[in-house]
Write a protein that binds this DNA or RNA. Structure first.
Length: 473
RNA sequence: GGAGAGGUCGCAUAGUGGCCUAGUGCGUCCGCUUGGAAAGCGGAUAUGGGUAAAACCAUCGUGGGUUCGACUCCCACCCUCUCCGCCA
């Protein structure tokens, strides 16, 4: 979530920012938020003032009731006076009457009845407070629901653009191989080598599921090990193994819900959700915590399966393992102070780039324009590997700075200095890297005329020394 | 899954209807003291909302209920620990 104070103070500026994100429905929510916020604070003031008076009167009531020095008649007289004061909303006078009741003795013997009336009056105040609190609860729920649909705002350095067509493309790194034969796509190479089995994947689970077999499965395992080793040994990340199923709050915390609810798989009985990315579990690792400044930055990396229903993209990229419902991903994650988060973003992209370099696969960096930023990022870079068989650049990494967007939802804070007020951390996430697409890139870039695949040198120690995947390996 | 015990401020504990504005100890911070320190003494020490700043409001695992009033009584749920069962 963004800071509601920003909307309160500069609603028009916020709207203009969201317009550049091409999120019209969110723009429309800003006016509603401003109104709800104002209503909430008005009601809150009224309810709290009344509650404060009620608390004081209730406390005094206990002593008044047990006041033995007061004659029955005087008590009845005083009680009537208190009721009158409350009716006139003169709470200080009511409190004074309860605390220092006049000794005037009416002696008309209706003390019991007067006390009951006073009790009813106090109950009435309590009920009024309760009614106001219910109203506030409703207003806050509406406000929260609207806030959850407001995207993060772009960093000033991000170029304004309508769609991905305007993204900034950096020059690619690494030589694009010239083939003396026509390179095949991975969906032909994989089955021919019997390392990817599409048919049986579909038999087991339906479309967009697949089976990796033999050296195909081994290749994936080798890549995962390589990625984790590079990030932990060279980039300072701490490896995590987290739950793959999480509570719904975690989905909200990582800004997956409510907007992307239709993308996740769920166990409705247990009310648990399968990770669409490890970013979800890592974001919430320090949920509801206040970290000390010297603990930051925190760098985490985890290999997890990622589960995506991708209902919206039916029909696109149907062939191969480019877009599937279940895939492994090594995810990098950083929690930083606000001052360092943009430098950390650059370092994050470099960490992902190092993997591409190690594999010696040509890749390029893309810098997203506002219209392609997504929901949670203030700034985002993608990395794309060249796939000569499919003849396209494949997104293998996406690195974002979310600033305090997730931290505000998940309540992840830090103390800038001992004793200082806690502030939200900044969070960053980046793939390092996604597995199926790097497998595609290896198969297609390292293929030979006979359909065999040369294993990148850096991977060979992880493959038992194997140099080539062929039909016999 | 079954039985029992428990969930209170950073940690440990006290608190069986109004005296709780949640006490005490430890830890931490500030001050006094000292040549400097330790000890001792005094004070401070949760989070969120709210305000120009205050006042004030909420939070004692969570959600309901009873009551003029709930840390305290009732109900449900969650979590932790011990034992049993099951299990890779």
């Amino acid at each position: 979530m963004i800071d509601i104070a920003l909307i309160r103070e500069k609603p028009d500026w916020v709207k203009a920012q969201i317009v550049t994100l091409q999120d019209e429905s969110a723009v429309a929510r800003i006016d509603a938020i401003v109104t709800l916020d104002q209503t909430r604070r008005t009601l809150l003031t009224e309810a709290e003032t009344l509650q404060a008076e009620r608390n004081k009167l209730n406390k005094a009531m206990g002593r008044f009731r047990g006041n033995k020095q007061l004659s029955s008649g005087a008590q009845g007289y005083a009680a009537q006076a208190v009721i009158a004061a409350i009716a006139a909303k003169d709470y200080p006078r009511a409190l004074d009457l309860l605390t220092n009741p006049p000794t005037t003795d009416q002696a008309d013997g209706d003390s019991k009845q007067s006390l009951d009336q006073l009790t009813d009056t106090l109950r009435g105040m309590g009920e009024r407070v309760e009614t106001l609190n219910k109203e506030i609860e409703q207003v806050e729920a509406d406000l929260q629901e609207n806030m959850l649909w407001i995207p993060n705002l772009p960093h000033p350095s991000v170029k304004v653009g309508v769609s991905d067509a305007e993204n900034i493309v950096f020059p690619h790194e690494g030589d694009i191989r010239q083939f003396d034969f026509t390179p095949k796509p991975h969906w032909e190479l994989g089955p021919a080598l019997d390392i990817i089995d599409f048919d049986r994947g579909v038999k087991l689970s339906g479309s967009r599921f697949y089976v990796l077999k033999g050296m195909g499965a081994r290749l994936q395992r080798a890549l995962i090990s390589l990625y984790l080793d590079i990030h932990t040994e060279q980039h300072g990340f701490t490896e995590l193994y987290t739950p793959f199923l999480v509570k719904p709050e975690m989905m909200y915390g990582a800004a997956q819900f409510p907007k992307f609810k239709d993308v996740v798989y769920t166990d409705p009985d247990a009310d648990l959700y399968l990770l669409p990315t490890a970013e979800v579990s890592i974001t919430n690792l320090h949920r509801d915590e206040i970290l000390e400044a010297d603990q930051l930055p925190l760098y985490y990396v985890a290999n997890t399966p990622c589960w995506r229903r991708e209902q919206t993209s039916a029909g696109r990229d149907v062939r191969g393992i480019k877009r599937v419902h279940q895939f492994q991903k090594v995810e990098m994650y950083k929690l930083t102070t606000p001052e360092t988060s943009y430098a950390e973003l650059e370092a994050l992209v470099e960490a992902a780039s190092d993997i591409c370099r190690a594999l010696k696969i040509p890749f390029r960096r893309i810098e997203q324009v506002t219209g392609d930023l997504g929901f949670a990022a203030t700034k985002k870079y993608d990395l794309e590997m060249w796939a000569p068989g499919s003849e396209e650049w494949l997104e293998v990494s996406s690195c974002s700075n979310d600033e305090a967007f997730q931290a505000r939802r998940a309540q992840i804070r830090y103390r800038p200095a001992p004793g200082a007020k806690a502030e939200f951390v900044h969070t960053l996430n980046g793939s390092g890297l996604a597995l199926p697409r790097t497998i595609i890139a290896i198969l297609e870039n390292y293929q030979q005329a006979d359909g065999s695949i040369v294993i990148p040198e850096v991977l060979r120690p992880y493959m038992g020394g194997l140099e080539v995947i062929s039909q016999r390996s």
